[in-house]
Design a binder for these strands. Structure first.
Length: 622
RNA sequence: GGUUCCGUAGCUCAGUUGGAUAGAGCAACAGCCUUCUAAGCUGUGGGUCACGCGUUCGAAUCGCGUCGGGAUCACCA
């Protein structure tokens, strides 16, 4: 297998074989599937393959919980869809104690599972600490997730925010799937772009520092990057008016030549340049740390390109000796990928220096050999799809079989209504500004609603932070990662409807009720009597809770936190409907009251658990 | 041009082993707070799932083609 986008993982259906949560050590899908097989064998004397049995959730407009599609069996039964459904339905009802009733609509056999099954399921999960999540490191599989990977010449913007949120959330999802996870950040701290900022600072900085200016370090350095670009463009313009072609002017402008000279000095370890580089990078790191802290992401290890950029040369050398790579007359080294439908790829320049690809080959080898990771996930924008396709292919050609375990988690761009963001032109949405705006909006809205009257300033601020960040994170994560998404700063991020605050609000409602119950001396039971009568709405809620483990697995396999986000929205929506329709604390029959409290509490726990996978906090009140 | 991703309501998005009448939110309009938090709930309107052909009992979903949009194909990273 190469990268994910070329070889998607085997599709896995909605239903999994998770043996842990059922009273009979079987999932609904499992025992029904088995029952249908038995039915076909008994009724028609045919043993069918598993993939012929198609199960799906029963649509809401029909009664039943799970539906078996009859069409694939018609050749076997040699009867009409309706009649086949009747026969199989009757067999299942008679032979499976969990099946309460059935109905046939067209070619669909709708089965109703009895209440005691669902109650047992609830009783089962209430005792589990982390329902839905696998035990930490239980698979024995080690996954490294590389994300964030910023350049040190400018502050983080909205695009980075998407990257960080996806990387962090995926790491949480992998953990919930029982993998050992190492989160790493490969900081691009060297190269011409940093030299541009450095040069601009030397020329026009007048000794300005984060301390002297009060600016955040990454912003300060970013300002000089912009300054460089302005001055550079002016030089080009002047040269062009003097008769040079655009292309020549771009190469010959004094500023760019100076920057390149600075890079050469850096590579030659010139003391002055290196110490300037160290100083400005340290400003940036301080700024990044602050941003990472605010948005709540972290790393187990940070790599710096200045320390890894020489890696990979040995690998290329060996590939050359083995005749897998080839040298051109000008001494540059290449991989020929034309037979694979790609182009030739440069791996060493004619002067023997390495390129981006070379070091990525090196770091991949290092990680697999030294850290014994089983899988490597690169969270990188889709503009680098080609790069990762090539990286994996070259490694395979060089004989590294683990290259099949490199995966590029490719995500789409964040676009603004005005089009693409360009940092050099200042048309970016800055990460720090954005977070601040979100929190401000949360504060305004909360004040307007009078929600947090009577709280200390500190408590209230913390809640504004949780809500503002929740809105931002959810907004970004609910979209399928591989799709480009639109961000409209004017409309900003909503707090109503399918949003983070909506889900957080649902959680606080539940918490509020649980608190009140405790205050009134009501104890939420540890288990529920199987004989209880469950309303259809309550069952809908239970069935959603039931899906949670499968959603976590889907999200892990398909590399999509959006599945978690959409699930938790559905859950919150369903709960709110339930909340409006039924009295809970006010229910007079204590059996029902306690059951509804019990159900509410579990729902709250699953909401919190799912939001945690997204890296979103939930407040106790809002 | 080659490769690749995408195109679903006015807007932002769900819709994953092919299944029943394609769903949410926002925006618009109409309702629901002396009753567990109205950041909520209910209802109305809104669709040629870009288009065509094919495979199938059945296609938003799979295949081929067309149109439209993004990305990429550097001795940049």
């Amino acid at each position: 297998m190469l990268f994910f986008k070329h070889h998607p993982p085997n599709k896995i259906g909605k239903y999994y074989l998770c043996v842990s949560i059922s009273i009979h050590n079987m999932t609904v899908e499992n025992f029904i599937s088995k029952g249908v097989k038995d039915a076909l064998l008994t009724l028609y004397h045919i043993n069918v393959a598993d993939n012929l049995i198609q199960l799906q959730e029963t649509k809401k407009e029909f009664s039943g919980d799970i539906t078996v599609v009859m069409f694939p069996f018609l050749k076997i039964s040699k009867k009409s869809p309706e009649q086949t459904g009747q026969e199989i339905g009757l067999f299942l009802k008679n032979n499976l104690s969990e099946i309460e009733d059935f109905g046939v609509v067209k070619g669909f056999l709708n089965l109703s599972i009895n209440q005691s099954y669902w109650v047992s399921f609830l009783n089962d999960i209430i005792s589990k600490k982390d329902y839905g999540k696998a035990k930490p490191c239980s698979t024995g599989r080690s996954v490294m997730v590389e994300y964030s990977s910023p350049n040190t010449n400018k502050p983080l913007h909205l695009g980075h925010v998407r990257n960080n949120l996806l990387g962090y959330s995926m790491s949480m999802i992998f953990k919930a799937n029982g993998h050992h996870v190492t989160m790493v950040n490969l900081v691009n701290d060297r190269g011409i772009h940093i030299c541009k900022s450095m040069l601009a600072w030397t020329k026009w900085g007048a000794g300005e520092t984060p301390e002297s200016s009060g600016k955040k370090g990454d912003h300060l350095v970013g300002d000089f990057y912009v300054k460089f670009d302005i001055e550079y463009k002016q030089e080009i313009k002047n040269l062009v008016s003097e008769g040079l072609k655009q292309e020549e002017a771009e190469k010959q402008a004094p500023l760019i030549m100076e920057a390149q000279e600075m890079l050469r000095k850096w590579e030659a370890k010139d003391t002055e340049v290196v110490s300037l580089w160290e100083m400005m990078n340290s400003w940036v790191y301080k700024g990044f740390e602050e941003t990472y802290r605010i948005i709540g992401v972290s790393f187990d290890r940070i790599y710096y390109e200045s320390q890894t950029y020489l890696l990979g040369k040995e690998i290329v050398k060996k590939g050359l000796e083995d005749g897998i790579l080839f040298r051109k007359p000008d001494n540059s080294v290449w991989a020929d990928l034309t037979k694979d439908g790609l182009d030739e790829k440069l791996l060493l320049r004619s002067d023997g220096t390495s390129v981006y690809m070379t070091q990525d080959l090196g770091t991949a080898c290092q990680r697999f050999s030294e850290y014994h990771v089983n899988e490597m996930i690169y969270v990188v924008g889709n503009e680098q799809n080609y790069h990762f396709q090539v990286l994996s292919l070259i490694l395979l050609k060089l004989g590294y079989t683990w290259a099949s375990q490199l995966k590029h988690m490719s995500y789409g761009m964040v676009e603004l209504p005005s089009g693409k963001m360009k940092s050099r032109e200042g048309t970016v949405v800055d990460a720090d500004d954005l977070v601040k705006e979100m929190i401000d909006t949360a504060r305004d809205m909360s004040d307007e609603l009078g929600k947090l009257d009577g709280y200390t300033k500190e408590q209230a601020e913390n809640i504004y932070r949780i809500i503002g960040l929740g809105a931002l994170k959810y907004f970004i994560l609910k979209v399928d990662p591989k799709k480009n998404m639109l961000f409209d700063p004017k409309e900003s991020v909503d707090f109503n409807g399918n949003t983070g605050p909506f889900i957080q609000y649902t959680y606080t409602r539940i918490q509020s009720m649980v608190r009140k119950a405790t205050e009134n001396g009501i104890t939420i039971p540890q288990s529920i009597e199987k004989s209880i009568i469950i309303d259809n709405k309550e069952k809908q809620l239970i069935k959603l809770l039931y899906k949670y483990p499968a959603i976590i697995r889907d999200a892990g396999v398909l590399l999509s936190p959006a599945l978690i986000a959409n699930f938790v929205y559905d859950l919150a929506k369903e709960y709110n409907q339930f909340y409006h329709e039924f009295p809970i604390l006010k229910e007079e029959d204590s059996t029902f009251r306690d059951f509804r409290l019990f159900l509410s509490k579990i729902t709250g726990e699953v909401i919190q658990s799912a939001m945690d996978l997204l890296g979103v906090e939930v407040p106790e009140r809002m």
